[in-house]
């Protein structure tokens, strides 16, 4: 699957979040505007697919049933109201899929663009998160503390949070990021990603670059407690000049494999060299 994506990206010159959908969306059409998406989601039956036309949607939506939202990559823009996550998922047992959407201007205490706070599944494909903010806690773009999160082919650019400029993984969430890019995000702790508590996450073929934080961990910073710590795996990733970091005294484990990382990375407390790494 990854090889196919890379081939497609090479052919059309697309990066994460710019991948055009190969098959047309079949479902209920939704027109751009303020509040149109919330109305469409509220009236959609469980399991529905909503096809979002190109254009701007000003949105603050609580998703309370399983639904698929498909946009035109790079042209369907979900803009925050400045009053909470653009999309929030706080009900258990749901299966939500998002594809080809650009999230921007989301402002919330946690998860400016997306918040997953329930035992549900959230699958995010070919989306772009840019200029979102979490001012009180973290995850400028995305916050998750429960459930299962799968993110593939997405770009996180220029998001800000207190903990996790782009992403804050907390509680007992299980997350997987594949073929994504994190650039220009910033936070007090965890410039791009912050993983806390019992979060379990895998990053495969993910690129980090130009993310910033005043403490080590501009790419990723982990923090646990005396009773549980996060477990993160980086596989086939590129860190550029970004760093890894861990809180004292309870950090977590970051397993690094087949990745290209700055030369001091593998000696950082909590980092496990799983082999095949290239030091730059």
């Amino acid at each position: 699957m990854l090889a196919m994506w890379l081939l497609w990206a090479a052919v059309v010159g697309a990066g994460p979040g710019e991948n055009a959908r190969m098959t047309p969306c079949t479902g209920t059409p939704v027109a751009p505007g303020a509040g149109t998406l919330a109305k469409a989601v509220a009236s959609a039956p469980a399991g529905a697919t909503l096809c979002l036309a190109a254009g701007e949607y000003v949105a603050l939506v609580e998703i309370e049933r399983s639904v698929t939202l498909i946009g035109v990559a790079g042209r369907t823009v979900l803009k925050g109201t400045g009053r909470g996550s653009i999309l929030g998922l706080h009900e258990d047992g749901l299966d939500v899929r998002l594809e080809g959407l650009t999230f921007t201007g989301g402002v919330a205490r946690q998860g400016g663009a997306l918040a997953l706070g329930a035992q549900s599944r959230l699958n995010v494909t070919d989306c772009t998160f840019t200029g979102n903010r979490a001012g009180e806690y973290g995850g400028g773009a995305l916050f998750a503390n429960r459930g299962e999160l799968t993110v593939s082919g997405c770009r996180f650019e220029g998001n800000r949070g207190v903990q996790g400029g782009a992403v804050l993984l907390d509680g007992v969430v299980r997350a997987r990021f594949e073929g994504c890019a994190f650039t220009g995000n910033q936070a007090e702790q965890g410039g791009a990603v912050r993983a806390r508590e019992g979060a379990m996450a895998t990053f495969r073929s993910v690129t980090f670059g130009g993310n910033a934080s005043p403490v080590p961990g501009s790419a990723l910073r982990v923090a646990g407690s005396s009773s549980r710590t996060p477990t993160v795996t980086l596989e086939g990733c590129t860190l550029g000049a970004d760093t890894l970091g861990a809180d004292e005294p309870y950090g977590g484990q970051v397993r690094v494999k087949d990745s290209t990382v700055p030369k001091d990375t593998l000696t950082v407390r909590g980092v496990v060299d799983a082999g095949g790494n290239v030091l730059k």
Partner: peptide, 25 residues
């Protein structure tokens, strides 16, 4: 450096916390 009030209530009561946006229904 910030946090989630729901997490603290959970830690004290042992019961699940959930959040709701005031901008919804």
């Amino acid at each position: 450096h910030g946090g989630n009030a729901g997490d603290v209530m959970e830690a004290l009561t042992g019961e699940r916390s959930r959040s709701k946006s005031t901008g919804g229904d």
